[in-house]
Design a protein around this nucleic acid. Structure first.
Lengths: 235, 235
DNA sequence: ATTATGTATTTTGTATACAATAATCCACCG
DNA sequence: CGGTGGATTATTGTATACAAAATACATAAT
């Protein structure tokens, strides 16, 4: 008898992740944190060397990030980080509130236990609202928890991608302005509407939530002027 | 004096497309037509050879198609065509009608000239409704024309990807059943609503349009039983 | 001094090579 | 006769190599 993966034993299957996935995570983090500045060019050889991998899985990761909207590529000139633009903000947020509302409306009533959980997260969010980084993480957790009963995987994937795009703007805003966008009030609105079974009302509050963020970002990014465009790599 | 690209002459910039893009187009077409059967495995070496390219740009194309939802990949086992499932249909169509409605509502009033164009395309659609392939192409052109004034590029990209996903189901349906899903009536509904400036009404008709397609597909795919699953490559 | 031009260097896009994992086949055992 | 184990082959995932194109640089001409 072998001691290894015996029959009845529920071994969590050994998960091997492709290199491109880990690379993607690291690069995305760099983009979100601004380590890879908006507008800057990506040098594949350098980046590959600094990550200790070859260009093949690196390029696979870069192409993925291009499809998600973080990078763009021009033939013969390679990849560059897409700039932060007012237009992007005006495109992304309506999609977010529309799709989160859709998820909320189509996923059926939220169980009471989940409401409890959401109230709790929102309380944490209220107290820890000094630290921008932590506040964003909690805000995200709140939304993810809210929509976790949604069975539409395509929809959740879209929302997830859009949230990452939005996160870049929110992080940049908070880094530059030092301010934190607070969502506690809107979250409460969503929860109280859900509490009385008013899904449409909850959706309206969700929309308001995203709209507030958008309305913080737009004047700020306008104030930044063409800054992101000027940061366009050292040329 | 040189005869070539003189100064004032507006030369349309020579567009070089990366290989992966062309490869993507060809493979997507194969998937839509069913040449690459739902559930079947993709052999990279063979496919690369048959296309006359190396595995590098081929894999880049495959990864793109995976992100779009046409392929899936398991580590160590490579790519396979995702099966046709009822669940997928139930996920994709609500997204389509929600996002097309959003585009319609946010893009402002449709100019009269566009309405004329749309009426024309719809007439063509009505007459050529014998040929399934042609009908699908015209239907697509109608929707694309309708939403062409939309300025939200992210939104249009999402819609485009979803339509490709939907097209696979509709083509499969029409190939197997010989029937054609007709949208002429719903299109007329959209147009007449737009004609009287009723954007919300138009959005409702648009939703009805997609819903009809969905309701054709669901019973059919249920009838297919687990067929797509059984077609799962030769194992 | 400034623009044009030819050359060197860098960098991308694609092809090939290699190592590790998964599938296949066949002999052997129960 | 079914199933199990081990070698063998295929296939993937990653690294490296190479060719073409773009950038940078130096030089020459106006």
């Amino acid at each position: 008898m072998t001691t290894g993966t015996a029959s009845g034993m529920k071994m969590p299957p050994i998960i091997r992740a492709p290199l491109r996935q880990e690379i993607r995570r690291i690069i995305l983090e760099s983009i979100l944190r601004g380590a890879l500045a908006p507008g800057s060019d990506v040098n594949e050889a350098m980046l590959a060397a600094s990550l200790g991998v070859s260009r093949t899985p690196l390029r696979e990761a870069l192409l993925g990030l291009e499809m998600e909207g973080f990078l763009k590529s021009d033939v013969g000139r390679g990849f560059s980080v897409v700039p932060l633009t007012e237009r992007d903000v005006e495109e992304i947020y309506p999609l977010l509130w529309t799709l989160e509302s859709l998820a909320l409306r189509t996923m059926g009533p939220v169980p009471a236990e989940k409401l409890q959980q959401l109230t709790e997260i929102n309380a944490q969010l209220e107290s820890s609202s000094a630290d921008a980084e932590a506040a964003l993480a909690l805000d995200r957790r709140w939304h993810d928890t809210l929509l976790s009963p949604c069975r539409n995987q395509h929809l959740l994937d879209f929302i997830c991608g859009l949230k990452d795009l939005a996160r870049r703007y929110e992080l940049a805003y908070m880094k530059h302005s030092g301010k934190v966008i607070l969502s506690v009030e809107q979250h409460r609105g969503v929860l109280s509407a859900l509490d009385r079974g008013d899904v449409e009302g909850a959706a309206a509050h969700l929309e308001a939530n995203w709209r507030v963020s958008q309305e913080f970002l737009i004047p700020w990014i306008q104030g930044q002027g063409a800054t992101p465009a000027r940061q366009k790599a050292g040329r």
